[in-house]
Design a protein around this nucleic acid. Structure first.
Length: 601
RNA sequence: GGCCCCGUGGUGUAGCGGUUAACAUGCCAGCUUGUCAAGCUGGAGAUCGUCGGUUCGAAUCCGAUCGGGGUCGCCA
């Protein structure tokens, strides 16, 4: 080793020890007759002192050293002189008096600051990711990520799980997300797909009798990106035989409770995790991934306002729509400008408008008078209607309703967005809280108008509730599945279900989804056949490791917890991926590239 | 694919019709023996993403384009 100690470990107990350190010049403070260098390595910082009277040669090297130079330093550990200790550093009570220095490598001035946590253009960070990762926060995040996966592996190993790898070159799946395709050289015109998740293979592992499987697996989806979505991401994939919903939900809860308490004991949690049915979650929060750190629950005003004088509301209700709202405590102080901004905001969700109703004045609700109702459409509301609204929402004077009248789906989506937006603006969510919640009882299917067919809400391998089997044919939209999601702070961490393990039921499911026997045989024959060889009842889940780490690291972007993420256009500024390939490579793969029209090259 | 925001010395920002394009930091040099965001003095460094237009005149207005980001659609 080129070093005897790390830069993070020296303490007063090392006083007098001869040590060799190696690392990067973090900062250099030149006092003319004395130079201080903070030497940094993975573990921390140590102050090194260069005194020309004690070591002239070492001093000369320190004099020409610059930021990020890689140095090897031999010296003696010494307690710092009285009054010069640095309480901000773990090693702040000692320093190393340098006897000799070797420049292991010089360094150009970095394109951005390694020191500190300043904002840097993200493109630049990605282009020089190796420098970005050198920064302390990124180091801490990557270490935390390692602790997360280690905890998971240890936890599951102790409980009898076996980690099994599944292939990355697998068969395409036309449904669901777009596949990343990999051309086959051996078989002209045929393609592998990178897995969107190991779903079918893990079910086959259950058939294979492993009973408790997990994998920390890379998954790929060729869809548009977001702050919480990357083209490749990591899932904790898990499957267990002979289980029911309760077993898996309990496992999810225990795993994430233990994980959080181990990695971030300083963060708050609500235990046990609350559980909401899908129906309740959508009713109260407008979404199946609610952020429970704050209130602002949805209020349904349809019944109160269906007789309203306001044509827009009456029409919306007459057309089968709803009138729903959130009530913002203290929101009566919102400026006109702010309300206009929120109106524009809900337009983004397809809502036609936003109606604000503020309750002014003092005293109880009973004394409310017409003049104390402030709304662009106040004249259409009676005092009695507003009082009824307020009672429904538990609102008081000083509060403000934000009302959306639309189809249930649009109103919910808009109010969910509004709820999160208002909480952001008013800082209602405790940033030190991880509010996990389990959502269960999802609908089995949802109807898509575009192609007039049913789609699985989870995926086609999910088992329907036994007692609703009769609904599958007669009323698929009313059937619920044996599935569950884990949600935290408004992020969907993942979900799972009890799977179908019988061929007949799986074929019936495909049938409802418009997949005929022949097509099912062609695409899923392996799975159907496997079910005929003693497939055990089984179920499991998959959660996003990137999202989990981001939540634990209190980052709102999963790129911050990935070593080498891609940009929004799915390219990597560091390696240049994706890149063009040579005509020879293409020919070997039997691939011809058609240039888009208007493409000059 | 739609909508929105951003693109000015190395970095982060200001400027928003006529400025020697400002500030901080970093960088370079000199001074400086106890600092730790060290300090002091001086210096170099950007024609304002790209292309086109409006104008006597554009970083500043308009259009297009490229790149980055957010979001809806999409995606579990």
């Amino acid at each position: 080793m080129l070093k005897t100690h790390s830069c993070g470990e020296l303490r007063p107990s090392h006083d007098g020890d001869a040590v060799t350190l190696a690392g990067w010049v973090h900062r250099r403070r030149d006092h003319g007759g004395l130079i201080f260098i903070d030497l940094r390595d993975h573990d921390g910082l140590t102050q090194v002192v260069f005194n020309p009277k004690e070591a002239a040669e070492a001093y000369a090297v320190a004099d020409v050293s610059r930021g990020e130079y890689v140095l090897q330093i031999e010296g003696t550990v010494a307690r710092r002189p009285k009054g010069t200790a640095n309480p901000n550093l773990p090693t702040g009570e000692v320093e190393v008096r340098a006897h000799a220095v070797t420049i292991l490598n010089e360094a150009k001035t970095p394109p951005f600051y390694i020191v500190g946590d300043s904002d840097v253009d993200e493109l630049l960070r990605l282009k020089y990711r190796y420098l970005d990762l050198r920064r302390q926060r990124m180091h801490e995040t990557m270490v935390m990520r390692h602790r997360v996966t280690k905890y998971i592996r240890d936890y599951l190993t102790e409980r009898g799980f076996t980690e099994i790898e599944t292939p990355c070159l697998t068969a395409p799946t036309p449904e669901g997300a777009r596949d990343y395709l990999v051309p086959s050289r051996m078989q002209q015109g045929h393609f592998y797909a990178l897995p969107q998740s190991p779903q079918q293979l893990k079910q086959l592992l259950m058939v294979a009798g492993f009973e408790r499987y997990f994998q920390i697996a890379r998954c790929f989806r060729d869809e548009d990106l977001r702050a919480d979505r990357q083209p490749e991401f990591t899932q904790l994939d898990l499957e267990v035989s002979f289980v029911e919903e309760e077993d898996i939900m309990r496992l999810l809860e225990e795993l994430h409770t233990g994980l959080t308490e181990t990695v971030r004991p300083d963060l708050k949690m609500v235990k046990p995790f609350p559980r909401l049915s899908y129906e309740e979650s959508v009713r109260r929060f407008g979404t199946d991934k609610p952020d429970l750190r704050f209130g602002l629950e949805l209020v349904d005003l349809t019944d109160v306002l269906r007789e309203s004088e306001f044509t827009i509301f009456r029409q919306a209700v007459a057309l089968g729509g709803v009138v729903r709202a959130i009530c913002v405590p203290g929101g009566a102080t919102f400026s006109r400008k702010r309300i206009d901004e929120l109106t524009t905001f809900v337009h983004g969700y397809g809502a036609r408008g936003l109606v604000s109703v503020a309750l002014l004045g003092e005293g109880g609700l009973d004394s409310l008078v017409q003049e104390e109702i402030r709304s662009p459409v106040a004249k259409y509301f009676t005092v009695e209607q507003v009082q009824a609204m307020a009672r429904l929402a538990g609102a008081n004077r000083g509060d403000m309703f934000l009302i959306v009248a639309d189809t249930p789906a649009t109103a919910n989506k808009a109010l969910d967005g509004l709820r999160r937006e208002v909480s952001r603006r008013l800082k209602l969510a405790d940033p030190d809280m991880l509010h996990f919640v389990l959502i269960y009882d999802f609908p089995m299917f949802e109807w898509h108008e575009e192609d007039e067919r049913w789609y699985s809400v989870t995926h086609p391998f999910t088992q329907p509730r036994q007692e609703e089997m009769h609904l599958l044919e007669s009323d698929p939209g009313a059937a619920h599945s044996r599935s569950y999601d884990l949600v935290c702070n408004g992020w969907e961490l993942g979900g799972g279900s009890i799977r179908i393990h019988r061929r007949e039921m799986q074929e019936e499911m495909f049938g409802i989804l418009g997949i005929g026997l022949e097509e099912a045989q062609r695409r899923f024959g392996h799975l159907l056949e496997a079910f005929e060889y003693g497939a055990p009842p089984h179920g499991g889940f998959a959660t996003g490791i990137d999202r989990t780490v981001a939540l634990l690291a209190q980052q709102d972007d999963i790129r911050e917890v990935m070593a080498f993420p891609k940009t929004k256009s799915a390219s990597d500024p560091l390696t240049g991926a994706p890149a063009e390939v040579t005509p020879e490579q293409l020919a070997e793969l039997h691939i011809a590239v058609t240039k888009a029209e208007g493409d000059a090259s």
